[in-house]
């Protein structure tokens, strides 16, 4: 857990203690945290959704290692554009026992990967903080994200493995999607979601070349030699909460 998360969690815990007159509030429900890479991770960049430079991508694996997962009730709601620390009144840490590696290409039928759950006091968890960190062990130790798959263009297929060792710290506001999320009530469970937008890395052929996302995205041409190559993700806004934005910093 990073220093900023320790500080925010301690502040939130102190606030809860003060509000409850010294007794820690009971955990009334459960929060379940999911992650996904949308259909671009499971189905690939296919059809109209080729990369910005016209490559079709299929992923065997999209590994992402995450840590420091904390859901917050904030007042006022967190403004990811303004950045800074969320004004948390309640914070709930997902105890994962350290960094956990997810395969976003192996999502379930609902397109999501279950990350962790935690007992949570009632309320609306309208902010989420988390980090993508280098994996401490395993086949891809030292890498925070790894993309393994095959790229195809003009009849040429290129097996690739792209590795990133970047650490990214995200502070996100409320989930934005088909429904609002994060409302915990007594005896019930609610879910939250980390959403990786892979088109911010590879761009999208079905969007104009001058679209800001395409202008920033790396695309795939730079990796067309295939094999194992390093990719820098610094500066790219990959992590979201549904369609909602996050403040991000890279190390």
């Amino acid at each position: 857990m990073t220093q900023r998360h320790v500080v925010s969690t301690v502040i939130a815990a102190a606030t809860m203690l003060a509000l409850s007159g010294g007794a820690v509030a009971a955990a009334d429900g459960k929060l379940v945290l999911f992650a996904n890479g949308e259909d671009l991770a499971t189905d690939g960049f296919v059809g109209r959704k080729l990369t910005k430079d016209g490559w079709e991508l299929h992923f065997d694996h999209v590994f992402a290692t995450v840590d420091d997962l904390v859901a917050h009730q904030t007042e006022p709601p967190y403004d990811a554009e303004a950045g800074g620390e969320p004004a948390a009144t309640v914070s709930v840490a997902f105890e994962t026992g350290g960094p956990v590696t997810l395969d976003l290409a192996a999502a379930g039928d609902d397109g999501r990967v279950r990350v962790a759950d935690a007992a949570a006091p009632e309320g609306h968890y309208n902010a989420l903080t988390w980090s993508a960190v280098p994996a401490p062990g395993g086949d891809w130790a030292g890498q925070s994200m790894v993309f393994i798959g095959t790229a195809t263009k003009d009849g040429r297929s290129v097996p690739f493995t792209l590795t990133s060792a970047d650490t990214h710290e995200y502070t996100c506001g409320e989930y934005v999607g088909d429904e609002r999320k994060g409302f915990v009530t007594a005896g019930d469970e609610a879910d939250l979601e980390i959403t990786f937008h892979l088109d911010h890395i590879f761009g999208r052929a079905d969007k104009p070349a001058d679209d800001p996302m395409n202008q920033e995205a790396t695309g795939f041409d730079a990796f067309s030699d295939g094999g194992t190559q390093a990719i820098s993700l610094a500066g790219l806004h990959i992590g979201h909460v549904g369609e909602g934005h996050c403040a991000v910093s890279y190390r």
Partner: peptide, 17 residues
């Protein structure tokens, strides 16, 4: 009120952000 958090791939560093 403030409309929050549109996706912003262009924000690449602290100053620009």
């Amino acid at each position: 009120a403030t409309m929050l958090a549109l996706a912003s791939p262009a924000a690449t560093d602290g100053l620009q952000r």
